[in-house]
């Protein structure tokens, strides 16, 4: 980097990555903040990668705070989006969603909200294959500009992404490969079961792309069901899935993934998911406006959101969540 300066040339992508990383505060220090303060770390126009997948470990409380804060022009990326995708387009905080699959869930059919906002051209849905999303994050996590992949070829998914991917003939084998570019989010937001005040995050169960995401992103915000002590983390370091020094802020939010699930703690709130589908089915614009009003704008705290979703739904989800450990 210093050499680039001496030579009077612009930094290459990798030099820029190294110099940004070198400037990050990687010390072991406490970084616990409120949910609102965590949301304030995200700027208009940022590319925000959402941790978890589908209806699992979605950082819903942080999305709630972002919607309330009225962020604009955000690009979201995620392995697969469910109703979180609907919410970021319907609330107007997202201009683009980069993902492999976008709908509330198979049992509810094709999302009317996604259809309305994407078909009208208000929000963009950029489609990659699932493995391509994974390798894009992984390339960024590895500090590489791309990775080769053996899917995508011959498909219209690749054709429609023209300019985003490249084809190459492997110099070793002569085989054709597609190169997918590193996906480097400005911020990754990840919800976990446990995290200490320094950012050592422990994930139970399904990991999705959440090992690569925090390594790929420029900044990482963690929401956690529970903040635990550093000594508790040190008793089972094998369960820590990413290290404190990649994390910038930690917010404790019990039921922070509701109405989606958090492995071992609660299942999706199925009745509430039915309600969302029902409200948005006939008239997605009015339905999502009503839903956002009731569950995003009117409640002044995340606890109030949970109150509005209701104790019955919360306890049903909790009881199902604990079942995962049954024989």
């Amino acid at each position: 980097m210093a050499q680039a300066k001496r030579e009077g040339r612009a930094l290459s992508g990798y030099e820029a990555l190294r110099s940004e990383t070198a400037l990050r505060d990687r010390s072991l220090h406490e970084k616990v903040v409120s949910l609102e303060a965590a949301a304030a770390l995200i700027n208009d126009g940022d590319h925000v990668a959402i941790g978890g997948c589908m209806m699992s470990r979605t950082p819903m409380a942080l999305l709630w705070a972002l919607v309330r804060a009225g962020r604009r022009d955000l690009t979201f990326s995620r392995s697969i989006v469910s109703s979180d995708g609907d919410i970021v387009v319907a609330s107007g905080i997202a201009k683009k969603v980069i993902t492999s699959w976008f709908s509330q869930g198979i049992v509810w059919g094709i999302s009317r909200v996604m259809r309305h906002w994407v078909e009208s051209g208000t929000a963009e849905f950029e489609e990659w294959s699932h493995l391509a999303m994974g390798l894009r994050y992984r390339a960024a996590a590895m500090g590489l500009p791309f990775l080769p992949i053996r899917s995508l070829m011959g498909s219209d998914v690749q054709r429609r992404l023209s300019g985003e991917t490249r084809e190459m003939i492997c110099p070793f084998t002569g085989e054709k490969l597609v190169l997918v570019p590193a996906l480097r989010p400005d911020v990754a937001i990840i919800h976990v079961q446990r995290c200490d005040p320094y950012g050592n995050a422990q994930i139970d169960g399904l990991q999705f792309m959440d090992i690569d995401l925090p390594m790929a992103a420029k900044r990482v915000i963690v929401t956690t069901e529970r903040i635990v002590s550093n000594s508790q983390i040190r008793r089972s370091p094998d369960r820590t899935k990413f290290p404190f020094f990649v994390v910038e802020a930690v917010a404790e939010v019990p039921y922070g993934s509701a109405p989606h699930e958090c492995y071992g703690l609660y299942e999706p709130f199925f009745r509430h998911m039915d309600l969302f589908a029902k409200m948005t089915k006939e008239d997605p614009e009015r339905g999502s406006r009503d839903y956002l009003q009731r569950f995003f704008y009117e409640p002044r705290s995340w606890n109030e959101v949970l109150q509005r979703i209701g104790m019955d739904d919360l306890l049903t989800a909790t009881s199902g969540g604990r079942n995962v450990h049954d024989e």
Binding site: M54, I106, G134, L206, F208, M209, E267, P268, V324
Partner: peptide, 19 residues
């Protein structure tokens, strides 16, 4: 309800990242 929730992991041999 999909291939991404805890019900998918019942009596599994292994869970691993999607990629």
């Amino acid at each position: 309800p999909s291939t991404n929730e805890q019900r998918c992991t019942r009596r599994a041999n292994m869970v691993c990242p999607i990629t």
